[in-house]
Amino acid sequence: MNGFFEDYSAYIMCFLLLTVGLYGMLLKRNYVKKVIGMTIFQAAIILFFILTAYKEGGTVPVKDPTLPLDQADAYINPLPHALMLTAIVVGVATVGVALSLLIRVYGAYGSLDEDKIQQEASK
């Protein structure tokens, strides 16, 4: 196990962040806090992808005249970055839809607290 935490410290932090987000989404009683949890959750995933792209000593994946192109190890992997651009867009859209739904919910129930709304709804 020696060295495990050192080697994977970034991943461990990332998964901690993931659990924080998941906790917020599942257990917070306030809907806006759930949405906040969701953004944390998504950020953690984005970080995770970026981490997989990282290489010790790699440089940005922009063509560098001093480095030959066939030396792939010298560049970090650009693909996860590109993917995460899409994922960020998806995340933003999700938050948008979530908030717009919440506006309707707030308009109808006058609250964003799960317990209060459930009381209201069961009346």
């Binding site: 998941l22 989404m25 599942l26 809907y31 759930k34 969701m38 959750f41 998504q42 995933i45 994922a87 999700t94 839809v97 979530a98 739904l101 919440l102 309707r104 919910v105 308009g107 109808a108 129930y109 709304i117 709804a121």
Partner: peptide, 22 residues
């Protein structure tokens, strides 16, 4: 409004599902 509420709940769960897949 009830539909919006359950749709929101679905959104939370659905996002978890999609993110797990991701």
């Amino acid at each position: 409004a009830k539909a919006s509420l359950s749709s929101f709940r679905y959104l939370i769960i659905g996002t978890i599902g999609a993110s797990f897949y991701l």
